[in-house]
Every structure is written in structure tokens, then in C-alpha cells.
């Protein structure tokens, strides 16, 4: 599979998917006008990856802001990686948040409640 690198805009996040490394990162702001249009191809891509995943897979979120329609797509994404995990491979979410940003921490905790996939919630200091 080819890597996917999408540069961020004012309303869409930076996407860095490197399937050969089992590494999938979403960072920045996610407020797309049409979240289905933005995330559908990425979800299809992840589904194809989940057919033959690497031994270790990481889904990394480093977000500042997102709208609720993006949240639904993040959960769909997490559910696709959850399948890799329940099939016996190593898959994990790394949910980064700015230590001042309790809201983002809670968003990570919400996904933890809704998924069997291990989710590490990691506070970082942002200048």
C-alpha cells in the first residue's frame, strides 16, 4: 500500500498514514465541511490495511479541535483497528493531548469507554 500524506488546512487535519510501519497519524484541527467526504477514503484505506496488518499498528491522534461529525469518524476508525486487535495482532491508539486541555483528555477517555482497543492517553506540554 502507498503511504498517504495530506497537508493540513484551516479545517482539515494533517494525515500521515505509513502502512509499511503500521503507523497512522491524524493531527491538528478536524472541522471539515463534509466530514464523510474527507474520512470515507481514509476509512476504506484502513479497512484494506486491516486485511493484512503489520505485527504492530499504532493509530496516533494529536488534535487541537474537532467537530462532532469528525468524532463519529474517529470512532469508526478506532473500531476498524479494534478488529486487528481482537484478531490477535498488536494494535494500539496513542491519544496525545496538551496538558492544559482537559477537554481533549476527556475525548480520549470517551473512546476508551467505547472501544476494546488499548488507548494510551498521553499528556504533553505545548508551548
Amino acid at each position: 500500500m502507498e503511504n498517504i500524506e495530506i497537508e493540513p488546512t484551516a479545517t482539515t487535519p494533517k494525515i500521515s498514514f505509513r502502512p509499511g510501519d503500521g503507523y497512522f497519524e491524524i493531527s491538528g484541527k478536524s472541522l471539515p465541511e463534509n466530514s464523510f467526504e474527507f474520512y470515507k477514503p481514509l476509512l476504506d484505506y484502513i479497512e484494506a490495511y486491516a486485511e493484512r496488518p503489520e505485527t504492530e499498528t499504532s493509530l496516533v491522534f494529536k488534535l487541537q479541535y474537532f467537530n462532532t461529525s469528525s468524532t463519529s469518524h474517529f470512532l469508526r476508525m478506532i473500531k476498524k483497528f479494534e478488529k486487528i486487535f481482537t484478531d490477535g495482532k498488536d494494535a494500539k491508539v496513542h491519544w496525545y493531548y496538551d496538558e492544559d486541555d482537559e477537554d481533549m483528555k476527556e475525548a480520549g477517555e470517551d473512546f476508551k469507554v467505547l472501544s476494546k482497543l488499548p488507548i494510551d492517553i498521553i499528556g504533553t506540554q505545548v508551548d
Partner: peptide, 17 residues
């Protein structure tokens, strides 16, 4: 405060969109 600012922006995102 950061938390309050974040909540206000989140609310604005949802309401305006």
C-alpha cells in the same frame, strides 16, 4: 482560562456549523 476558552470554541464550532 484555557478550559473555558476551549469549551466556548467547541460550542461555536457546533452552533455555527
Amino acid at each position: 482560562p484555557f478550559r473555558k476558552k476551549k469549551s466556548i470554541i467547541n460550542i461555536l464550532i457546533e452552533c455555527l456549523q
